[in-house]
Write a protein that binds this DNA or RNA. Structure first.
Ligand code: FES
Ligand code: FES
Lengths: 140, 140
DNA sequence: TAATACTTGACTATTTTAGTCGGGTATATA
DNA sequence: TATATACCCGACTAAAATAGTCAAGTATTA
């Protein structure tokens, strides 16, 4: 049960952006330097964030990315979804009649994992990007 | 963010066991057949469960494994711990002064992931093995 | 003594992760 | 208009983790 770098970096990068004046394009190069994340990797991540309307891009000199909405209105669950990061605790296809063991019925633990999945998704649904900024002033 | 088979199977197998009279050794072969889990894999898993005092073993014919405690007193968190399945959402070593990016300070998202980790661990801490049985009668 | 069932360590194929890279296109500014 | 900046996009890859598999045991009971 662990979190991958793609979702961690996505949130980290967006949090970085939201510390600066909105509507002001921020280049991936700057984020890369400030947060020590590979530029190439960031490009990959932001492509998805863009496709999912979380950021928009400004090309050319002085370009970069801009948050599409106020950080107050960006849920972490959206970010996760954007980078294809599903919370998956069940071993079966949810909509299928078959269980994780290939049998016809759902397994003995299915309901438990399902409950866990809902539980975790709740966390991401209730957290906004802006929640990352109010903790305390940071210098990195 | 997903769950691996080792922890899923561990819980599944123990839940299977707790449906039968306690103190009655249950062979892995039976669990394997009922739950469609590889016998070899179960052996690997139960070795750890035994080392962590969740089950005890009875060798020889009619042997098997026996739950050491009542399912009411077995937390899922113990089971996860036993099979080495930590919930790991932060990218850094928790006790280290260094952040996930190798810098001296904790990163901008550290507190968030830490909170998530606590949140998820709470789920496992509050669930008992017995909670899996009361949902409804099942036939597998 | 034969069969059952746990014991242990090592081994492996497959999948996932975590990036990397190359060759673009668009835009601002000097 | 030249040039540098910065996004765009697909393909590629090394390394790690996962999900098992296997072999060669030992203990116990019927
Ligand atoms: S997890 Fe859904 S059937 Fe087992
Ligand atoms: S997650 Fe701990 S410092 Fe980044």
């Amino acid at each position: 049960m662990k979190l991958n770098t793609k979702s961690r970096y996505a949130v980290m990068a967006l949090a970085d952006m939201s510390k600066f004046p909105l509507n002001n394009p921020i280049s991936l190069r700057d984020i890369s330097l400030r947060q020590s994340i590979s530029l190439f990797y960031l490009e990959q991540i932001f492509l998805k964030l863009k496709k999912n309307d979380i950021v928009k891009s400004v090309r050319g000199t002085n370009g970069g990315y801009v948050l599409r909405r106020d950080p107050k209105n960006i849920k972490l669950s959206e970010i996760f979804q954007a980078v294809d990061q599903k919370v998956k605790t069940v071993g079966c296809k949810k909509d299928s009649k078959k269980g994780c063991n290939g049998k016809s019925a759902k397994c003995i633990t299915h309901e438990l994992w399902d409950e866990l999945e809902v539980y975790i998704n709740n966390f991401f649904d209730n957290k906004k990007l802006s929640d990352l900024l109010i903790t305390k002033e940071r210098n990195n």
